[in-house]
Amino acid sequence: MITLKNLHKSYFTASNSLHVLKGISLDIHQGEFVSVMGSSGSGKSTLLNILGILDSYDKGSYHLDGKLIQNMSEKNAAKYRNETLGFIFQSFNLISFKNAMENVALPLYYQGVSRKKRNVTALEYLDKLGLLEWAEHMPNELSGGQKQRVAIARALISKPKVILADEPTGALDTQTSYEVMEILKEINQEGITIIIVTHEHDIAAMTDKIIKLRDGVIGDLIINGDLASFKKSYAKNVATL
């Protein structure tokens, strides 16, 4: 689904340049549930932005669903984001003057779906996430967990192949975090690839594969079988705290 080959990315400011990604090669298959970890400055957000076609890269290659993503026009990038990708953010990023249903329906608006049809679809997705009775509520009338579920519904409505989640549980308490992770797991079981960026070990432990970034390169790649030992070492870390 996602193939990165020797990906490089630098940021330039007036006086100096910052080499953030120093050659990332990565394969993520369809239906995988992957988490990206790393200390701040390790490049995990940059990586997610590149995966989300929100940012460009300097060297290497990025194939999404078999298509090379490079030098895309803004218009094409927007279309591709809309059709292939779904985003979930730490701060939910709902539009404050639209109610839950309208927020969920927004991606379909950009696909040119008629108002009636997209509202019906939005209600379906809200129902799926147990929020049907909150459909007419504005974001500031919802709790954090509810907001994130609205955001998940919004990410799902365009039937994306990949969902990118940037610290999806970062602003939630533990119980709500686990609920959100349960939802993501269910979605993943329907065959949608999910990539989350997180710095919480317990959250990462719920995924199938953990990519640990260190100073712009992949430090550790922990896959299925190793997860048990990761959990064990994580438990040990918690114990020493």
């Binding site: 927007a78 984001r81 059709e83 985003f87 990023n93 927004l106 991606p107 950009y110």
Partner: peptide
Amino acid sequence: TKEIGIRKALGATPGS
């Protein structure tokens, strides 16, 4: 700015 950013992430073209 933020709202526009969200819209773009959700697939709004510069034209729209």
